[in-house]
Amino acid sequence: MSDAMLSVEDVHLRVRRFEGVHHILKGVSFAVQAGERLAIVGESGCGKSLTARVLLGLLDRKRIDISGVARFNGTDLLGLAPAAWRGVRGRRIAMIFQDPSTALNPVFTIGDQLRTVIRRGQGVTRAEADGQALAMLEAVAIPDPARVLAAYPFQLSGGLAQRVLIAMALVNRPELIVADEPGTALDVTVQEQTLRLMHRLTAERGAAVILITHNLGVVRRFAARICVMYGGSIVEQGGVDDIFARPAHPYTQALLRAVPRLTGAGLPEGIDGSVPDYLSPPSGCRFRPRCPRAIDACAVDQPLLEVGPGHQVACGRAA
């Protein structure tokens, strides 16, 4: 694991609120190799977006306790001083935001925002940044880049604006890209195009990708490895084919049954219940109250155990 580009080990995240402490991330551990594509999958509220924000240091550490280690090429991101983040954010780790209609500043042009990203990342001159901005918009297949640079976000379609977000993430040639449900706010065909584009460009540049999504259909085509997240913990991880063919955790199995299919009989099945309450979560496996196969042994914490090559599961029934 030590040779991984990013290794996240036993990260806990607690939010102090008026009514008590919410223990949201509980022992999250995973690793990303250089150039690898990892998907983090789970339903809304499972902590996957928070995990992304931990990696970029975007959370207010005054209100949020984060413990554990997130080692990125030797440096622990969780111990990074605010000034040191400048060398990492947008330059070595970049994020693709989810909703292009809110993630771009409404009162500045695309050119202004993209140029600032480039100049903060590379410290180049304005003219140089202009040239790079134009070239990058061309690279994300925007037909009229000069017009888009002069435009305000509200003048662009959702698909075009999402491409701008991809351009921002790629332009400083980061080693790792965290894509937080890119295109979820767009319609399905545009989302598909966006993902393909992201896939192609990151592959060309050899950047590793953490794709955060709730859409298992997307994962199969765009990731090599999957982490399934539930209630702030990773409950199963492994290669895409292993997970789809031999899901070991009852939650992963339920998630796969919930995917709508065009072929075959029957409707997708839902999962009863809802994501756990983080203020007083169930002990041990957090899926226990919703799990059809739960036994008494599930009430204690479950470590990730190897069930196949590179395929691990945290489940009391797996042993």
């Binding site: 954010r89 993630a103 500043n105």
Partner: peptide, 24 residues
């Protein structure tokens, strides 16, 4: 979200306070 993006791309605190957050 757009200020979170500005943070994620290491915009300076001053440019956020006096430009990217101030204008909206």
């Amino acid at each position: 979200a757009h200020i979170e993006l500005a943070r994620a791309f290491a915009f300076s605190e001053a440019s956020m306070a006096l430009k990217y957050a101030l204008r909206p």
